[in-house]
Amino acid sequence: MFELIYPGLLAGILLSFSTGPLGSFIIWRRISSFGDTLSHSSILGLAISILFEIDSFYTVLFFMIFLAIVLAWIEKLLSVSLETILSIISHSSLSLGMIFISLMSTSRHIDLGNYLFGDLLIVTVFDLFIIALGSLIVLTILFFRWNSILLLTINEELAQIDGVNIFYARLTLMLTTALSISIAIKFVGVLLTTSLLIIPPATAQLFSDSPEKMIFFSILISIISVTGGMFLSFFYNTPTSPSIVFFSSCIYFLSNIKKIM
């Protein structure tokens, strides 16, 4: 039994090491819609990959990196709030991607099921290598840019006074999030990736009194969610990724109840 779910379980655990810290920063900066924007926009990246018959993983990865750079410049140049920009781009990209896919589906068969909801049970050894490499890159960047990104998150004006390049610190956070989401989408799916980014850090926030503790608990809760969700999926024959998100949500609500009591 364990041999069947081991690759997917290991993939989920490796993803937790990047989604936990990045999700914490997303919650601190109150830009949870940024994850939604990248996830929804990946549908347009998928449509482009189908149109030009290019590997979808690399197309989505480069498309989201490009989008993260564009968003960072837009936030710098325009006076409109980031939330407004994210909402417009999210819905526009999703709509355009679905239009392209619907037009192409008349000439070829396109199955969006796995892409929307993911499937951790189809993980290969090469996939594990990509996930491990992606998580290592994210953790390395966060380690070396920790002070500047954290200071930006706490107080942007104070960070600027302290000599932090606001644009590059913001861009670093956006690019690492884009990398993490593009990797996670293949296995967790477009509709559930943001949940994996947000719910464990939101739970960890209830028990943390410092940024470092919150990131540690985010990773731990994410690993517990992945493990619990996969075993739930195996024993009750439910979809893997939704089971993980459901298990994570249960931990969040139970933690809130315990906190109140």
Rank of each mutant, 00 (worst) to 15 (best):
I166Q: 02
A159T: 00
D162T: 12
E156Y: 04
M174D: 13
S148A: 14
I161Q: 11
E157F: 05
T176K: 06
I181F: 01
E157G: 07
E156W: 00
L175S: 03
A178R: 00
I181Q: 07
M174C: 10
L171P: 02
I181N: 00
A169H: 00
L173W: 09
D162W: 10
I181E: 07
V164F: 08
L151P: 10
M174R: 11
A178D: 01
R170T: 13
S148P: 09
L151E: 10
L151Q: 08
F167H: 11
T177L: 14
S148F: 07
A169Q: 07
I149E: 08
N165I: 10
G163L: 05
T176N: 08
G163Q: 03
S180D: 04
L151S: 11
I161C: 07
T172W: 04
T153G: 07
S182Q: 02
N165S: 14
T153V: 03
Y168M: 10
Y168W: 15
S148R: 13
S182I: 01
T176W: 06
L151D: 08
I149C: 02
I149Q: 11
L179A: 00
T176R: 09
V164W: 05
I154C: 07
E157L: 11
I161N: 13
M174S: 13
L175E: 09
Q160E: 15
I154E: 13
L150D: 05
G163W: 03
A169C: 08
L150T: 09
S180I: 04
F167S: 08
F167R: 03
I161H: 11
I181M: 10
T153L: 05
L152A: 07
L152W: 08
T172E: 10
A169R: 01
V164C: 08
L150G: 00
E157I: 06
